[in-house]
Structures are given as C-alpha cells and as structure tokens.
Amino acid sequence: MSIYLLCLILFSCGIYCILRKRNIIKIIIGVIIAEYAAHLFLVLVAYRMRGRSPIFSAEAEIKNMVDPLPHALVLTAIVIGLATTALLIGIAMRIYEKYGTFDITRIRELKG
C-alpha cells in the first residue's frame, strides 16, 4: 500500500510544481514528474507477487509472469510524453526569444 501512496505523493509533487512555480522550465519539469508518476502507477498496477519479467523465449515456461499489457501501455505513454515535452521545450525557447524571460508573472499579455 505504502508504495502506491509514494506514487501519489510523487504525482502531487508534479502538480504542485506546475501550480506553484513561476519559471517555465520548472513548470515543464513538473509536467514531466507528474507524467512519470502516472507511468509508475501503471507499472505498479501490473505487478504480481514474486512475478518475473514477461519476456518469452525458447526455453522459458509461462509461469508467474507479471501482467505485460500495462508495460506496453507505459511504452506508448512514454512516447506521447516525449512528443509533448519536446513541443513544450520548443515553445518555451520561442517564448524566451520573444519575451526575454522565463518568468510567467511577466508573460501575461492575454487577459479578460
């Protein structure tokens, strides 16, 4: 149980970082932390007691494997995370080029 709670704490850290930090780069890091917490949770969901890695080979017998499906899901989610992070960093660099700052309190021209 405690390991699930730790996972939740990690997720909360990410969300806190997104909500509370002013620096754009720190916000991106917050997004990444929250994302990894979600991935970690999926991997935890897959775990079976004393299970072994779900790799099939010629001599292996299929016995007591952990659930392999969430691993595939996590791989997909990581790829999506890669795309999102790369895009966020690209936008952040462009913002720095235009505004000359990473501080979100000084990047607020849209209101109303």
Binding site: I24, V31, A34, A38, T84, L88, I95, L110
Partner: peptide, 23 residues
C-alpha cells in the same frame, strides 16, 4: 508573442488533463 503564450498555457493544462485520463 500571444500565440506562444496561449499555446504554452493550453499545452500544460491539457497535458495535466490527459494525465488525469491516464490515471
């Protein structure tokens, strides 16, 4: 300027939304 600012806000918020969906 404005497009980038809006896109950053949009991207961060919607990514968090997607994380909730994933969870």
């Amino acid at each position: 300027r404005h497009e980038l600012e809006a896109a950053f806000k949009y991207a961060v918020m919607c990514t968090v939304g997607s994380l909730f969906v994933l969870l």
